[in-house]
């Protein structure tokens, strides 16, 4: 049986704008991936535990509140602590361009801004997922 790519789609922080997260979840499903949708108001700890228990290949996060510099790096840090640095982590939402270098230096593989087509996200995952 062909291995399915498993993706955690999570909204860290408190903002409730999940249109983007839900559209991405659907697009990844339609690209044949298994998406575990964890919903709103997720702490980095909850996201990381979900990623471990679900044996996820990818953690995709969306945030529109401006708390990305605080929350995204924390997820990568916790994954490292658990020996799960092979999990691909990326983010999207309203994120100023000037924050991207910082986020990448903290291990966020990519940051997708507003207007990114879902196909770009699908391609990115397929190209970068570490366990095939």
């Amino acid at each position: 049986m062909e291995r399915k790519i498993r993706v955690i789609v999570a909204k860290p922080g408190l903002d409730g704008h999940d249109r983007g997260a839900k559209v991405i979840a659907r697009a990844l499903r339609d690209a044949g991936m298994e998406v575990i949708y964890t919903g709103l108001r997720q702490t980095p700890e909850q996201i990381v535990q979900a990623a471990l228990q679900e044996d996820a290949d990818v953690v995709a996060m969306s945030i529109l509140s401006g708390a990305h510099n605080h929350l995204f790096p924390r997820v990568v840090e916790l994954l490292k602590e658990k020996g799960a640095e092979d999990i691909l982590v990326f983010g999207g939402g309203v994120i100023p361009e000037e924050d991207i270098p910082f986020l990448k230096s903290k291990g966020i593989a990519e940051v997708f801004g507003p207007g990114t087509p879902t196909s770009a996200t699908v391609e990115f995952i397929k190209a970068h997922v570490k366990r095939g």
Partner: peptide, 8 residues
Amino acid sequence: GAILGDRL
């Protein structure tokens, strides 16, 4: 593919 939402 699938969207697994029970965990939510």
